[in-house]
Design a protein around this nucleic acid. Structure first.
Length: 513
RNA sequence: GGUGAGGUAGCCAAGUGGUUAGGCAACGGUUUGCAAAACCGUUAUACGCCGGUUCGAAUCCGGUCCUCACCUCCA
């Protein structure tokens, strides 16, 4: 029986079960305007729909996922001018960075990543439709040029998404400089420009599209009118999404709403304030990935439910180095879970004896893991409650560690080892499933720890060869039972950030964050 | 002014009427040559404030204080 997640719908202000119109769930996410590198907030915004897509696919549903890239915009033009760069070269460059970094934080590549510059035709068509049916009007600042505006008052339902009344908006009265508009709330579909300015030839003369029209044109082109889920940041509810609704629904009268369900993610806050370019308090994704593991960052972002605020703390150490304590903490959790996975894999590698009936002392482990797996899925289906889902994954890792501890105590019981290995295999399967939903734990533990170690060594200016030389020296001292000398070396390494852990046969080392 | 979100233990963060969220940090213990990791326990009868409803409220209702966001570009 097919089931679907329940999600908060901004349109109805309530939690609803996602009920797709057709066999394929259609999802559109408002991506970034690419005039600069992405910051932590962009990553959070990409994450919410990514979780939904993952969950749906893992439940066996077909999904069409579209995330646009706005590569035509006045901010891009302004930045390009400043750089002395072609605007599309700048936006192209930044789009690549965005795509790479979103992939790095574990976001699936969307089925389509349309760019405005490739969809001018669709924008022309939509604009023409709105002109034809009286939803939009043209003003001619120069002969042969046209500025085209959407007539907000022609769309009766205007304000239904953001719950604003037109008259309240007028009362809120920003100063309107462009008095050519019929109404101060009207917004541009097409902005004319001179022959030497950045723009495209259109049926309305040379110019550039307005801010909102590109999303209406692209979501309609890829998903049709009336798709299932439209996602984006909370700051887009008004005016961007309100205007999208107005444009698209005015162009498709009688065809129902543009999107059935609107999901909006909360902000990443720095000192309780929204992280934003204009405040200058932003931390870029590169800043974080330089310092922390990508999965640690993802875990951090999942640590708060997507609709609420997420507190991003920064701390400057006495050394001057800036660290992100919250991300560090999340990364330690990732270490913990990978550590448990590694132990499970070792147990499986040693022996696996499939059995229909586990001994009584192992039954509780299997039950805990099954419960945690169910809790994780239920949490995700309940409006993507990722903090609860992460707690469930942590519970699985803890059960795994306990089971491994138990097996370790019984190393001489060969029969038990095989059965424990079988249990370990089952736990691995369950954790892999949960990891797939969350977009976490997709590396092998060995690969994860190797990459973490490489990065942490680089941060501290250490090399493996230097560390191993010290470790060898300590092993020699310990072999001679000169524990004082051995401990001195260990303390020396610890001061450098290297932690040693002795096993009966060898010494492993790891780097602190 | 209009609209919306939120205030939960030292910190982060779930929870929308009654049975443990979870994590981090700190401390104690098991284990260890000593450590690390792992495991167990404590910190924790926390829910901005004042009333009300109820057998029972962090959770519902009324009031109030504070914070943040959107109304101009924003994920």
């Amino acid at each position: 029986m097919a089931s679907f997640p329940r999600l908060y719908n901004t349109l109805t202000r309530s939690i609803e079960e996602l009920t797709p119109k057709a066999d394929r769930v259609t999802i559109y996410c408002c991506g970034p305007t690419v005039y600069d590198v992405p910051h932590a907030g962009h990553a959070r915004a990409a994450l919410a729909p990514d979780l939904l897509v993952r969950r749906l696919r893992n439940q066996g549903h077909a999904v069409s996922y579209v995330r646009n890239i706005t590569d035509v915009d006045d901010k891009i033009l302004a930045r390009a001018k400043k750089n002395g760069e072609d605007p599309l070269a700048l936006s192209g460059r930044m789009a690549t960075v965005y795509q790479e970094q979103m992939r790095a934080v574990g976001c699936l590549t969307p089925d389509h990543e349309p760019r405005v510059s490739d969809h001018l035709t669709q924008i022309f068509e939509l604009t023409a439709t709105l002109l034809q049916n009286g939803s939009a009007y043209a003003i001619e600042p120069e002969p042969g040029q046209k500025d085209i505006y959407f007539a907000v008052r022609s769309f009766e339902a205007y304000g239904k998404l953001s719950r604003r009344r037109i008259d309240d908006l007028i009362a809120g009265a920003r100063v309107e400089r462009d008095s050519d508009k019929h109404d101060p709330l009207d917004f541009a579909l097409w902005k004319s420009c001179g022959p030497d300015e950045w723009g495209w030839e259109s049926p309305f003369g040379r110019g550039r599209p307005g801010w909102h029209i590109e999303c209406s044109a692209m979501c309609g082109h890829y998903l049709g009118h009336g798709f299932d889920v439209h996602a984006g940041g909370m700051d887009l509810i008004f005016p961007h999404h309100e205007n999208e609704v107005a444009q698209s629904e005015a162009a498709h009268p009688g065809e129902g709403p543009l999107a059935k369900l609107w999901m909006h993610n909360g902000f990443v806050n720095v000192d309780k304030q929204k992280m934003s370019k204009s405040l200058g308090n932003f931390v870029t994704v590169s800043d974080v990935l330089e310092r922390n593991d990508a999965e640690g960052f993802r875990w951090f972002l999942l640590g708060a439910q997507y609709r609420g605020p997420l507190q991003f703390d920064t701390e400057t150490l006495t050394s001057g180095r800036v660290v992100f304590p919250g991300v560090d903490e999340a990364e330690r959790r990732v270490d913990y879970v990978y550590g448990a996975l590694q132990r499970l894999r070792e147990l499986v590698a040693a022996a696996v004896t499939p059995t229909a009936k586990l001994p009584a002392e192992l039954v509780p482990f299997r039950e805990r893991v099954a419960n945690a797996e169910r809790a994780c899925e239920e949490a995700l289906d309940d409006d993507l409650n990722t903090p609860v889902a992460l707690a469930a994954l942590g519970e699985m890792a803890q059960a795994a560690n306990e089971a491994c501890d138990l097996a370790k105590k019984r190393t001489k019981d060969v029969g038990f080892q095989g059965i424990a290995g079988f249990l370990a295999h089952q736990i691995l399967v369950a954790m892999a499933k949960v990891g797939l939903d969350l977009g976490l734990m997709h590396a092998t533990p060995e690969a994860y720890f190797a990459r973490a170690q490489t990065r942490r060594m680089a941060l501290r200016g250490l090399t493996a060869a230097a560390i191993e030389e010290k470790v060898a020296g300590r092993a020699e001292a310990r072999k001679n039972r000169d524990f004082a000398a051995g401990d001195a070396i260990r303390d020396e390494l610890l001061a450098l950030g290297v932690t040693l852990s002795d096993t009966p046969t060898s010494t492993a080392w790891s780097i602190a964050q």
